[in-house]
Design a binder for these strands. Structure first.
Lengths: 224, 224
DNA sequence: ACCTGAACACCGTTCAAGT
DNA sequence: ACCTGAACACCGTTCAAGT
């Protein structure tokens, strides 16, 4: 035995919450791909088999972790008819920010529909804002679905760079390939490279969000 | 030796294209997760090590396969100023259809920005349609980015059911959990379960697409 | 009841050795 | 030059055996 038990705090007893917390630590430190059952177990000074007492499998653990991220999102002020658009954009931006603090977590709600309380609380608040804005029920329902696809995908795109650890190099590399494209075959693409790569993540994310929010005023659902 | 070489056609010589084609066969049959280097090699009657003569690694193989899917997309008629909205929606719907025929492939353009010719050809056509519609350059550029996030995520959502092979059961299971939610805590969610689950994939996809397309007329980019 | 060592059936990738 | 058997360093999950 290398260390006496007095060298460090008594090992916390395992529990479902401890497993999820350990998963969150690994997630924040190294991204979703690094959240292996073995890595989470190591974080708890135990072996991977021990985790199966508290979670059914890796997929369930990741779902719990996603809900923990969702619970970090501040629902914000009560829906206000006069400010519904900015409330909506602000709420969805907070969702993205929470996911961006946990690289790769956006893959989880894209792999199966979240049903945890954290996620439901956000959807409930979004529906409240949409109702305050006078959006018809069917439009509001489908909007929630569509806009989360966008938000999740946007967060995932950001995490590519974070998870690969390069940030600058990857972006520069793809930009380079775009600058070498065949001007004759893709004239528009070639002439618009500047516009395609301009703007930071926030400006681009906000643009897409506003596209969908403004669209709500002008698009009817096809459902009867 | 179990079979003489006359029992079957001469084994096709390996090549980069053969590796990609074998990957596509596995993809269509069993989804992206099933496209392992070992499965692709087995499809070619060889071992996984042999593939590395033609592709650098699994990631590169998947990128090539995504571009093969992109090349299946019909660019459609020349951009027409009078019909730019429907042309745009039709093109993006064809993109989704092509991806839906290859379950899980949408994860590839979400994991790294595509730079192949198949993808570029589609972007070039989209930019042409947007220009015909009189959309400013910066809006068009950001729109392409945003709308592909949405299209990729939407295709991925569909493939959840296809890849898990259940289709009906998974959808019914999540719906069931929604019908049991706490009416007091989530009154809107509870009262709108019907609206949230209504509509087939096509109607919902089209709704989100039209949100973004209509939004183009009303949202300005923040870039100078 | 709770925990876990060891094993099983997989992965992607490398490399020395073959033809 | 092209191909590949065998190995390496990983995975998620199970289960018999321990306490």
């Amino acid at each position: 035995m290398a260390r006496s038990t007095r060298d460090r705090p008594a090992k916390a007893p395992l529990s479902r919450d401890a497993v999820i917390a350990a998963g969150m630590t690994v997630l924040r430190r190294a991204g979703l791909d690094a959240v292996t059952m073995r890595a989470v177990a190591a974080e708890l000074d135990t072996g991977p088999a021990s985790l199966y007492v508290y979670v059914a499998n890796r997929e369930q653990l990741l779902n719990e972790m996603f809900d923990a991220v969702a619970r970090e999102v501040e629902p914000g002020p009560e829906p206000d008819a006069a400010r519904w658009r900015e409330q909506l954009e602000a709420l969805l931006t907070r969702v993205r920010d929470a996911m961006d603090r946990h690289p790769g977590i956006a893959r989880v709600p894209l792999a199966n529909i979240p049903t945890g309380h954290g996620a439901m609380r956000i959807v409930e608040r979004m529906l409240g804002i949409l109702r305050a804005g006078g959006i018809p029920e069917q439009s509001a329902a489908w909007f929630v679905d569509c806009v989360f696809l966008y938000v999740n995908a946007a967060s995932l795109e950001t995490s590519i760079y974070v998870e690969s650890g390069l940030t600058e190099d990857v972006a520069a590399g793809t930009r380079e390939r775009f600058e070498q494209i065949d001007t004759a075959e893709y004239p528009l693409l070639a002439s618009m490279t500047g516009a395609l790569f301009s703007g930071d993540g926030d400006a681009r994310f906000s643009f897409g969000l506003r596209l969908m929010i403004e669209g709500l005023r002008h698009v009817k659902t096809s459902a009867r």
